[in-house]
Design a binder for these strands. Sequence first.
DNA 1: CGGCTAATTGATAAATTTCAAGGGCAGTGG
DNA 2: CCACTGCCCTTGAAATTTATCAATTAGCCG
Lengths: 238, 238
Amino acid sequence: MNVVSLARSDILDFNPAVERVRRLGELDQAGADRFAAALFPPRRQSVRATLAAELNRPVTHRALLSGWAGRVRILADGRRQIVELFVPGDLIQIEAGALSGSDTVVALTDIVSSAVDPAVWQDEPLTALELKVGCVATRLLRNQIMRLGRQSAYERLGHLLLELRERQAAAGFDVRTSFAMPLTQEMLGEALGLTTVHLNRTMQLLRRELMVRSTRNGVELLDPDTLARMTDYQPLSA
Amino acid sequence: MNVVSLARSDILDFNPAVERVRRLGELDQAGADRFAAALFPPRRQSVRATLAAELNRPVTHRALLSGWAGRVRILADGRRQIVELFVPGDLIQIEAGALSGSDTVVALTDIVSSAVDPAVWQDEPLTALELKVGCVATRLLRNQIMRLGRQSAYERLGHLLLELRERQAAAGFDVRTSFAMPLTQEMLGEALGLTTVHLNRTMQLLRRELMVRSTRNGVELLDPDTLARMTDYQPLSA
DNA sequence: CGGCTAATTGATAAATTTCAAGGGCAGTGG
DNA sequence: CCACTGCCCTTGAAATTTATCAATTAGCCG
């Protein structure tokens, strides 16, 4: 009855994307299975690989099954902005050609992902889901804008960590003690509009104040409620 | 044959939203008319009014016909971020309830707008359009993230002005000499993550360098190409 | 034990914010 | 017609935050 531990214990057929869609759409087993069946065979890619549009369509989704990715924009002088972060379970919207602008989706770690058959959104229990998935993605973009436009380094980092935690929880991962955070501080800085040096110092501050503990390849939030209050974090599932 | 001047000369039935959709979807007259017919009677609202979801649907579009609006997020301590700006011709996506997060769409000037009948997207020549409209909106959000995360005050302002110009051009306005810019410097600052004071100084810098000339309620870009190079601006229509 | 890459530190410079006032201009009412 | 009031734009000086530059340390893998 504990979905989290079931999902974790039976790694073999735990699929974070299916889990996420199941919860988001409040699907029953049949609906979840239908979505699972719409996933093409997973493909493995290494860090820095590019995720491209597929199936000869202007817009496709790829379900990220493991590893992290990011949508990246690079300026003429080499500055790099990670516009959007993707964690396991996310459905990454990839646009073909001109529609994508100058942004690229890149693997930030080694990843596994599968294309989503667009036909699946026609099926009755899933019709509303494409819309919902889009709305959530848009809200994340707006969160990112709020962080970059209005928050201090400290707030940005705290807010982002809370968001990443909630997103992983929404994909069925157990985040109660700690959650995955495989990004280097350089990448985190590129996402948060901060230099590596400053991000490092900000992270140290969070640790010194006992808001965060870093574990191997992961992070633990020691007082999420206070952190949420301090950084104006609003749960996605509000 | 000059669409711009035709549109301008016949103000009476110039509808920037119809014009924009017509171009975006490469519609013929019949298609454009079909879209025009899907617009509910326009409603007038004053500055600071809120645009709310309608038609008992989770997501609706409102076509902004005149005046400017913005999607706004307010933090607990009163800081305000304009997440997204809307100019005449834009189709503003408005989410109901929880889907919207804590963001609100607000009139930044007096405005006129009409709801879009969602049924219109089912019609054949327009099917692909909802997708395209969404993609463009998303690209604008990503532009905003890039500006806030990676650019200096000078670059941010220049980049945004170029974007606002192109968007108004895309809605059929003649932007060759100057274009509308009815926002106060305070609002511009709230959009660009800058204080009013700093925005003011940055604007003066752009003027001093003869990149920008301010006219009454409008702006003229004196050397758009150079400005685009300096600010890494990529046309939406690329 | 190298040889990486990532994390950390210290010192200094630059960008941006804050605070506090002035000035311009348009509409309003006497 | 003029003073008045309410925005909005503009300025100056000082304080903060964040970036830059340049090493140094820590960890991990073969």
